[in-house]
Design a protein around this nucleic acid. Structure first.
Length: 183
DNA sequence: TGCACGATGAAC
DNA sequence: TTCATCGTGCAC
């Protein structure tokens, strides 16, 4: 299991979003190592992308998105869920990849289908906002044996307000995966 | 200082 | 289609 290097994140956001499929998200908390396989992602390209939070500019909330690649951007939505992103590209580019679903691999008791449930299952909350994903307690790694799969591209979920940006196929998932069979 | 609205999920 | 629930951003 190889931890992804900084250079992995310092690339085109769409490439990062595609390449994150099949990778392992690891969160070690209180001596418990939880592992989930990433099966669905969405790319948010930067301030010019009207669906991205960074389109609102640099604010206390989006600060992490404007920072270095390879850091976690965790935010609170709808008064009850957390969503986790991975910051991509150079500092100031303000782009990120939203992790939308994981498949439980180890020590994950709940299903992680959907960005809110993913965070709940992996015990990810606001305290991990701005956390370096090259750390030893919260990171992403390539599995020892990469599985073969087909990738599907679709429009992103819940961003209808973003005009033409809502139509672009910036959502990626592993074909046939149980988590993303609907919508 | 107030308020409309979410990168959601579950129920109906 | 509706609702739970509250932080964020922007209007005033």
């Amino acid at each position: 299991m190889q931890k992804l290097p900084r250079e992995f994140y310092d690339r085109k956001t769409i490439m990062v979003a595609r390449d994150l499929l099949g990778k392992l998200l690891i969160h070690v908390q209180g001596g418990v190592e939880r592992v989930g396989k990433i099966v669905e992602t969405e790319a948010y390209l930067g301030p010019h992308d009207l669906a991205a939070h960074s389109a609102r500019g640099l604010t206390p909330r989006t600060k992490v998105m404007f920072g270095l690649p390879g850091y976690a951007y965790v935010y609170f939505v709808y008064g009850m869920y957390f969503c986790m992103n991975v910051v991509t590209e150079r500092e100031g580019h303000a782009s990120a990849v939203l992790l939308r679903a994981i498949e439980p691999v180890k020590n994950v008791e709940e299903r992680g289908c959907g960005p809110g449930l993913l965070c709940r299952a992996m015990k990810i909350d606001k305290s991990l906002n701005g956390h370096d994903l090259l750390s030893d307690d919260f990171f992403i790694a390539a599995p020892a044996r990469a599985d073969v799969f087909q990738m599907v591209k679709r429009p992103r979920i819940g961003v209808d307000y973003a005009k033409h940006w809502a139509k672009r196929h910036l959502r990626f998932y592993i074909k046939g995966n149980a988590c993303v069979s609907r919508r």
